[in-house]
Computed example of a mutant assay.
Amino acid sequence: MAAIDLARRRILVVEDEPILAFDIVDQIEEHNGIVLGPVVTLEKGFDALREMKPDAAIVNINLGRQLVYPLADQMVA
């Protein structure tokens, strides 16, 4: 199997479960990516998107009682 190389791409992590967030961060770093976050709220996700300009994102659909769809729509736009 070929090694995965994220080539220093900036990946925003939007996850409110600490164990999952740390695992995702470890995986990104293991594959040569740059982690932005993790952020744990929708508002912080919007701030990070605007300020950090990530190349990609990994998001949890449910952040507490909020759904992440508005943030995902903004990322796509």
Rank of each mutant, 00 (worst) to 15 (best):
V25L: 08
V40C: 15
N62P: 08
N62M: 10
L36H: 06
F46K: 00
D26H: 10
V68P: 00
V35G: 05
V35M: 04
L67M: 15
V39N: 05
Q66K: 11
L67C: 12
V39W: 02
V35Y: 00
I61C: 13
P54F: 05
K44A: 11
V59L: 14
R50F: 04
K53F: 09
G64A: 06
L63C: 01
E30K: 13
E29Q: 11
G45D: 00
G37W: 07
N62I: 08
V39T: 09
V59T: 12
F46S: 00
P38M: 05
G64T: 06
D47H: 10
A56L: 12
T41S: 13
I28Y: 05
D55H: 10
E43L: 15
H31A: 08
P54I: 04
V68G: 02
Q66A: 14
T41H: 06
A56I: 09
E51N: 13
N32Q: 15
L63H: 01
P54N: 08
K44D: 12
L42I: 05
L49R: 05
I28G: 00
I28T: 05
A57Q: 02
P38F: 03
I61W: 14
V39I: 11
L42K: 00
A48M: 03
R65F: 15
D55M: 03
I34F: 09
V35T: 07
Q66Y: 12
G45Q: 06
I61D: 08
K44C: 07
N62L: 14
G37V: 02
V35N: 03
V25G: 03
E51L: 15
D55E: 09
G45K: 03
P54R: 06
P54T: 07
A56P: 11
V25P: 01
I28A: 07
E30R: 14
N62H: 15
V39P: 05
N60Q: 06
I58W: 04
L67D: 13
K44G: 03
A57M: 13
K44Q: 14
G45S: 03
V59N: 07
V59M: 15
I28W: 04
L36G: 00
I58F: 10
R50D: 09
T41M: 05
L42P: 06
V39M: 07
H31D: 09
A48Q: 00
A56E: 15
P38G: 04
N32Y: 10
E29K: 11
E29R: 13
G37Q: 03
D47P: 07
V40Y: 09
A56Y: 13
V39D: 06
V35Q: 03
N60P: 03
V59I: 12
P54G: 08
P38E: 02
L67V: 13
K44R: 15
H31N: 15
A48I: 04
G45N: 01
I28H: 07
V59G: 09
L49Y: 01
L63G: 04
A57K: 03
R65W: 10
L67A: 10
T41Y: 03
F46E: 00
P54C: 10
I58L: 10
I28P: 01
I24M: 07
M52G: 09
Q66W: 12
E43I: 12
E30I: 10
H31I: 04
R65Q: 15
R65I: 15
E51I: 08
F46N: 02
L67E: 12
D55V: 05
D26P: 09
P38H: 00
Q27E: 12
G37K: 02
I61N: 11
A57N: 00
V68F: 01
I58R: 01
